[in-house]
């Protein structure tokens, strides 16, 4: 049986209570909104770019512990990354939270590996990935709010 502590790891709880980079970036080069209609989670991601590289990234919004911690830790791990690196990190992250990572070395994920427990809770995958989907939309410059549905 899945263990709640695999999902609600200390690091995740701590980030959900005190999210990092929780502010609006002004002016933002890119921003996008993400929405999970199932539970009402709603986030905005802000980006400042140096050409192809993410100079600064922040977020605001409301949501469950998983989605908020995921957004917070995502912003930490993306500062200074290029678009391609960000995209690859999301792919790795997605594989791990959906349990498709196989033998992939979770070291590539660094601190984000704490979300590996999410794969035991399929209903919560959308919570963990909402911020990342929103990030992709921001990088692509989409205008419409991203929905997990």
């Amino acid at each position: 049986m899945a263990d709640l502590r695999d999902l609600y790891q200390e690091v995740i709880l701590e980030h959900s209570k005190a999210p990092r980079n929780y502010r609006e970036l002004k002016p933002a080069d890119h921003q996008a909104q993400g929405y999970n209609p199932l539970c009402g989670d709603r986030f905005t991601i802000y980006l400042q770019m140096d050409a192809d590289r993410i100079r600064d990234i922040s977020f605001q919004g409301s949501g469950c512990a998983i989605s908020k911690a995921s957004a917070s830790m995502m912003t930490q791990s993306l500062k200074g990354k290029t678009r391609t690196e960000a995209h690859e990190l999301f792919n790795n992250f997605h594989e791990v939270v959906t349990g498709q990572g196989g033998g992939r070395d979770q070291a590539e994920l660094g601190k984000l590996a704490v979300f590996s427990g999410v794969c035991e809770f399929p209903l919560r995958v959308k919570c963990a990935t909402l911020a990342w989907h929103t990030l992709e939309a921001a990088l692509e410059g989409k205008q419409e709010a991203v929905s997990t549905e």
């Binding site: 899945a2 999902l7 609600y8 539970c39 009402g40 949501g63 998983i66 209903l123």
Partner: peptide
């Protein structure tokens, strides 16, 4: 207070308790 209903739902579910969370 301070805990999102979705998290409440997941933890109750682990106890076999079915409630609805959301809007």
């Amino acid at each position: 207070e301070g805990i999102h209903p979705h998290d409440v739902g997941t933890i109750l579910d682990q106890e076999g308790i079915a409630v609805r969370t959301g809007h």
